[in-house]
C-alpha cells in the first residue's frame, strides 16, 4: 500500500472523531449560543482515538504517511472549525 493510500485510510477515522469532538465541543456551542448537548464521546478518550491512527503509523515506521496524516488532520481540523463557524 502506498503512503498516500495509508494516509487516507488513517485519515478517515480521525476525521470522524474530529467531527464528533467539534460538533459537541461545549465552548464552541456556548460561544455560538447553541444548546449544550450531552457529549457522545468524552474529550479525553476522543483525543486518544484521534491520535491512534498516527500512533499506529509511527509504530509501523510509516513516516511519510505519518507526516501527511498529521498535516491533513491539522489542516482539516482548522478548515472544519472555519466551516462550523460559517454554518452557525
Amino acid at each position: 500500500m502506498s503512503s498516500a493510500q495509508l494516509t487516507l485510510l488513517c485519515l478517515l477515522p480521525s476525521l470522524v472523531v474530529l467531527w464528533l469532538l467539534a460538533s459537541q465541543d461545549p465552548k464552541r456551542r456556548r460561544s455560538l449560543r447553541l444548546p449544550q448537548r450531552q457529549p457522545r464521546l468524552p474529550r479525553t478518550p476522543g483525543v486518544a482515538l484521534l491520535l491512534l491512527p498516527g500512533l499506529l503509523l509511527g509504530g509501523f515506521g510509516q513516516w511519510p504517511a505519518l507526516l501527511m496524516w498529521m498535516g491533513l488532520t491539522l489542516s482539516l481540523g482548522w478548515l472544519l472549525t472555519q466551516l462550523l463557524a460559517w454554518r452557525a
Binding site: D25, K27, R43, T81, L84, A85
Partner: peptide
C-alpha cells in the same frame, strides 16, 4: 485544547 474549535465569526 479547550478553545481549539472556538471561532466567534459572528
Amino acid at each position: 485544547l479547550r478553545e481549539i474549535f472556538t471561532l466567534r465569526r459572528w
